[in-house]
């Protein structure tokens, strides 16, 4: 009996039988290229500003491994979350819910890429960086995706650990160790994640509610979200300046980082004052857009200062 007939006998309509049908681009989409670009950028900064420097070829190969590892985590996340992606407008067109890639393919694709990227980074750079990459992938898939995302409003806070580790991996690829400096880079992204994600969750809360994901605005309401966003924005603004005190950046960096941090807190304050009757939620949209710019500028400044300091 042919495969499709067998599936039809199981009650699956012939046109929905999952055969290997996706285009190459669908598999690229499984890797979450936009998230991957942020991971590559922050890992690159961590690698470049490390005091030891790194052979450019080994650095490049390490970045490829880190990018593929991040992509693997994305593919495994899409495999696990296909059921909720299907009911959210933002994610319904992803390769698995739209039927272009069978779920099992995404699982195998993600698992092999994940394992391969860790081994590759170990061979290219060192086993500290490889261990951190493995931890990041496993944390994102098992702790964030499979456990926290559907069970607690603090999902993205704890899950944010995975998103904050790439600069530490980049630093470790260059130096072979983790240090206070790389921990500060980690802390910047870790503290940045909650206000950034909750700003989005505020104006997409209907989507999250429909999928049953207990994002903070859905589970605890607007007020609790506003308070907690402010509670992360203030320490973020402070930690953003710290690289200037650790000798990682100049006082000029410190001044600009302080201004950017103040702007971040001001925009979060505007979200804090946003009434529940505000359906358009412009302050939340503004903060979300600015948060991306903030992180980009902080890391670009660190990179640029290191670049200029090089002989």
């Amino acid at each position: 009996m042919a495969y499709i007939e067998r599936r039809e006998a199981e009650g699956v309509a012939a046109d929905t039988v999952p055969i290997h049908d996706g285009a190459a681009g669908d598999y690229v989409q499984l890797l979450k290229p936009r998230v991957m670009s942020l991971v590559v950028f922050t890992a690159f900064v961590g690698m470049v500003i490390a005091p030891t420097g790194i052979n450019p070829i080994i650095g490049f190969v390490s970045l490829v491994a880190i990018a593929v590892g991040a992509g693997a985590a994305g593919a495994l996340n899409m495999w696990y979350d296909a059921d909720i992606d299907r009911v959210m407008a933002r994610t319904a067109r992803r390769p698995i819910p739209s039927g272009r890639v069978p779920a099992g393919d995404a699982l195998v694709f993600g698992a092999w890429l994940g394992a391969g990227s860790v081994v590759f980074l170990g061979l290219a750079a060192n086993y500290v960086a490889a261990g951190l990459l493995a931890f990041t992938i496993l944390f994102y898939v098992f702790v964030y995706t499979a456990w926290l995302k559907r069970s607690t409003p603090q999902n993205i806070v704890i899950g944010g650990v995975a998103g904050a580790l790439p600069p530490m991996i980049g630093w470790a690829a260059a130096t072979g160790t983790v240090s206070m400096e790389s921990f500060v880079l980690f802390l910047i992204i870790f503290l940045w994640t909650p206000p950034h994600s909750w700003a989005l969750a505020l104006y997409r809360s209907d989507d999250y509610a429909r999928a049953g994901i207990p994002m903070l605005p859905v589970a605890k309401g607007l007020r609790a979200t506003q308070i907690q966003m402010l509670a992360y924005s203030v320490p973020l603004a402070v930690v953003g300046v710290v690289p200037a005190f650790l000798g990682m950046a100049s006082p000029a960096y410190g001044v600009v980082a302080a201004i950017l941090g103040a702007a971040f807190v001001f925009l979060t304050w505007q979200v804090y004052r946003m009434p529940a009757t505000d359906k358009e939620m412009r302050p939340a949209r503004r903060l979300f857009a600015f948060s991306l710019l903030y992180l980009f500028l902080i890391f670009v400044m660190l990179l640029a200062e290191r670049g200029f300091a090089m002989p």
């Binding site: 290997h20 049908d21 190459a24 681009g25 598999y27 490829v64």
Partner: peptide
């Protein structure tokens, strides 16, 4: 699409060979 996937796999394998060579 099958052809596209095959080409993508070939490109990825060649890229991997190149990376191992450089490394």
């Amino acid at each position: 699409r099958q052809r596209g996937r095959s080409v993508a796999i070939a490109v990825a394998l060649f890229a991997l060979v190149g990376l191992f060579y450089l490394l």
